[in-house]
Each structure stands twice: as C-alpha cells, then as structure tokens.
Amino acid sequence: MTTAVATVRDTPFLIGGRTFQSRLMVGTGKYPDHETMVRAIEASGAEIVTVAVRRVNLDRSKEESILHHLDSKRFFLLANTAGCYTTEDAVRYARLAREAGFNEFVKLEVIGDQETLLPDVQGLLEAAKMLVQDGFKVLAYTNEDLVTALRLEDAGCAAVMPLASPIGSGLGLLNPFSVRTIKRRLTVPVVVDAGVGTASDACITMEQGVDGILMNTAIAAAKDPVAMAHAMRLAVEAGRAAFLAGRMAKREVAMPSSPVEGMLD
C-alpha cells in the first residue's frame, strides 16, 4: 500500500511581483533568545521574516542587530513600521528601513490606540499613498473593515493585511465573515496579520481562503517556540489544502455514512 497522495496543486504565492513557497510569514520579536528564534524560523518554513527599525544601542552592552543572527540571503526581510502612531513617523521609519538596502517592501503599521493597537485607518491610508508614490511595495496592516481594505487596494498596496484579532492577543480569528469578504472583494493578496494564538487558529484562518498569515507572538511566546513553529507550518498547509479541497456543506441534521440498505431483519 502506498501512502503517496496527489495533493491539490496550489497557485504560486505572489506578492508585489515576488513569488514565495511558504504562505506563513513570521516575526522575530519576543523570543527568549536568538538561538530559539533562528530554530523556530527554520521549523516554520517561512521565507518572509519581519523586522523592526530601532535606534542602535550606543552603549552596546548587549543588544546587536538581528542581522547577526538571521541570514539575509536566505530570508526575505520585511521591515515594519511597528510603534508608529502617525503618518509622518511611519513614512520616516519605512524610508530608514529601505535605506538598509534589502528591498522596497514595507509592512505598514499606523497605530491609533495604545490599548488595542488597532490601526488608525486614516493615517494608514495617507501613509500608504505616500509610500506607494515613493516606490514602496506596501503591505498594509489593517482591521477587518472591507471599505478600508478596498481603499488600501485602490491606494496601490501590494497586499492588505487584516487582523484576526488584536496584536499579541492570541484570540484567534474573531471575524471570519469579514476576512472572507475582504478576500472575496480584493484582487491583491490578503494576508491575515496578528491575533493567531495556536495551530487551530491558523488552520481556520487559512480555510477562509486568504493568501497567507503573518504571526509572531503565537510562536515566540509558546512554551516551546520551535515545536509551535512546526505546528503552525502544518496548520497553514492544512488550512490551505482544506480551502482548495472545498469543504462539505454544513447541515443541521445527521446523515448516515454507512448504507441504510442491507440491514438484518
């Protein structure tokens, strides 16, 4: 008996003119140490890895650049504008990141509220327009609002990234309907960013038909980040495969799986 199966052939995962194999993108923050981070990223199979832009620590007591640990030739570095609360700051951070010389992609965040870290959609749209004009490939972190997503696409964003739930919350996909609607209505890739807590969340998210998921805390804050990264890899692949397979219709009553004919008297 063979266990080989012909899996459903997926379309390439294309963002901003680049093709990737993995639909899982991972962050590099909050790991207990650099070695765990590197091993977790390996286990995740991710190619796109996010980084943040911050001041160099001038006393150099411990901190060093993440690039000491991450092979920038192997991974596609996606700089973010995390921590920016204004259009001006986000544009400034994006330009600094581009100057590092890796690529013209940016994960744009313009945060509007400290407690929820929900996006300031007005600032986000302004920043997206400016950065697109400036030649950036903008991946915009946004909420699950369809109209904002449509406007981000109109602004020329390379991808739109609605949240599953607030950043670092691990609450999972709170609004599958909205995420599905965004995916259905947009032409550019839709990548769910933030809120996934465990593998089932990732799987359910991918089952909505979105193009990918970006996560950080769910892996970094797991008891065993390397093992969770592996679980996330499987979950993203499983969710994607299930979406492509097309699930059965739901019904409110049972239907027997075994024949009703041929029962004994």
């Binding site: 909050k30 790991y31 980084v51 832009v53 160099v56 650049s65 993440i66 590092a100 950080n216």
Partner: peptide
C-alpha cells in the same frame, strides 16, 4: 543611527 531588531 538605526538598525533592524526583532519585531513582528
């Protein structure tokens, strides 16, 4: 003076 650090 800035550089890349870990982030999501």
């Amino acid at each position: 003076l800035v550089h890349f650090v870990g982030g999501g």
